[in-house]
Structures are given as C-alpha cells and as structure tokens.
C-alpha cells in the first residue's frame, strides 16, 4: 500500500520542530486529571547557545541541545476526501502531511534542581 506524503516545503518554509527528552515523568496534579487543557507544563529557557533550562513545578532541569543522527519528520494523517479521489488515481484514501522536521532534541538527563525558596517562586510567577 502506498501512502503519499505531501510536503509543502517547496512552497513555504518547512517548520523545524524540536524534541524535549526528559529523564522522568511530568505528572499532573491528581485533582486536575480531567481538565488539563491550556495548562502550562513548564518554561523552557535558552540560557546560552545549546544550553536550556526547563522549569516544571518546583523543579528546574538543565539540558543541552543535540542533533539527531537521522532527522525525523512530523506527519499529520489526513483522510483524503472523495473529492480528492477523483483528482488522483490513488485509492488509499490516506494522506500524510508533513508538518515539521525534527533535526534536534533537547536532552534533560540530569537530576532536577529543586526550587523551594519563596522569592524565587515569586519571581517565576511574575515571569
């Protein structure tokens, strides 16, 4: 079976994505299980070239940007409508749209640093 990839790179600039890899889990508060939408997970800051910090809850993670050996594509599956079917001879009915390409990942593999002092928290809140 043939699946067609549709890339719009030629027409417009292909958006580059990035992977955040954590050693650990981001857990939501048990009371918030049902309504997670629009909640901020954390803040990612680029401290310097290639160095990032990621703040989740009261933990601050620090990580580095690394290039993937093989880039990854981010695809979006599309149901091809009947209208399209007439256009194309393809009969699969599924189309994958390339949304982005991932060439880098940011790896947070160190132990998180706890931010428990009050003034710091407030500062962050203000941010």
């Amino acid at each position: 079976m043939q699946i067609r990839l549709k890339c719009t790179c030629q027409q417009e600039e292909c958006r580059e994505w990035s992977i955040i890899e954590l050693q650990g889990v981001v857990e939501s508060h048990p009371s918030l299980v049902d309504h997670l939408q629009n909640l901020e997970i954390g803040r990612l800051c680029c401290v310097s070239e290639g160095n990032y910090t990621f703040t989740v809850g009261y933990h601050e993670l620090s990580g580095t940007k690394m290039a993937l050996k093989k880039p990854l594509l981010v695809l979006k599956k599309k149901k091809v409508g009947d209208a399209f079917e007439s256009d194309s001879s393809d009969s699969s009915g599924v189309e994958l749209e390339v949304i982005g390409i991932i060439r880098h990942r940011i790896l947070f593999k160190t132990r998180p640093m706890a931010l428990i002092s009050k003034p710091l928290v407030k500062d962050k809140k203000n941010l």
Partner: peptide, 15 residues
C-alpha cells in the same frame, strides 16, 4: 492548595 493549583499543575518526577 487549590488556590495555587493553576500556577503549579505539573510536577516533575525524576526517574
């Protein structure tokens, strides 16, 4: 606790 829930909904658990 609920008052602060929105500001800190997620916690990181290091493996």
């Amino acid at each position: 606790a609920t008052a602060e829930r929105d500001s800190r909904p997620f916690l990181f658990k290091y493996n």
